[in-house]
């Protein structure tokens, strides 16, 4: 492989978790390797390297993609969100909280990718049915859980986000009693 090192370098600017980076990369560098090896963000995992398992899922301009099948140069000028940027220990993203509360993981290897895929799912379907959750997570593989608790975790996150939205709306519009105003449960 040494003889291929002479390959050209291309400047890439990406906004990762709100922070801007400009780095020179070889065009063949995969986005996942930029994140892990160049930027040191190792929360994004490489599971299969064949675009099947989804452990490498990140959000590019808000959309879930498999970062093992996308070049870093294809993300030039894009905003990338990884598991490190979706929430913090003090302030977990509702999906992270759901995985905690509903035990949506065992070994945890696939979890960063599943959480990012679920975040995109909930962006498009804020109140998904269990079937929609399962369809939305088709692109991730978990070898431990059998998916039952992952579905529960995503449903939990959807309810949290719905009730949070309800609270904000209620507070903003009428100042009604927030406990009564929240619209937590799924209606389907």
């Amino acid at each position: 492989m040494g003889d291929l090192r002479s390959s050209v370098q291309v400047p890439v600017t990406v906004l990762v978790n709100g922070r801007s980076y400009t780095v020179d990369v070889e065009p063949r560098l995969l986005l996942v390797h930029l994140l892990r090896d160049v930027l040191g963000l190792t929360g994004t995992h490489i599971g299969c390297d064949t675009s099947q398992c989804g452990a490498c899922t990140v959000l590019v301009d808000g959309k879930a993609v498999k970062s093992c099948t996308m070049l870093a140069v294809q993300a030039d000028g894009c905003s990338v969100t990884t598991i490190e940027g979706i929430g913090s220990v003090e302030n977990l993203h509702p999906v992270q909280e759901g995985f905690w509360e509903k035990h949506g993981l065992q070994c945890g290897f696939c979890t960063p990718g599943v959480i990012m895929a679920a975040a995109d799912l909930l962006r498009q379907h804020p109140n998904p049915t269990d079937e929609e959750i399962r369809e939305g997570l088709e692109g991730v593989i978990c070898r431990c859980t059998g998916y039952q608790n992952i579905v529960r975790a995503v449903r939990y996150a959807a309810e949290r986000m719905q009730s949070a939205d309800g609270e904000v709306e209620v507070a903003a519009t009428a100042g009604l009693d927030r406990g009564e105003g929240s619209q937590g449960g799924a209606t389907s």
Binding site: S51, V60, A64, M70, A117, D120, L121, L137, E138, G139
Partner: peptide, 9 residues
């Protein structure tokens, strides 16, 4: 066409 992540690309 693949899962959602693939459909996005």
């Amino acid at each position: 066409v693949g899962g959602w992540q693939i459909q996005n690309r």
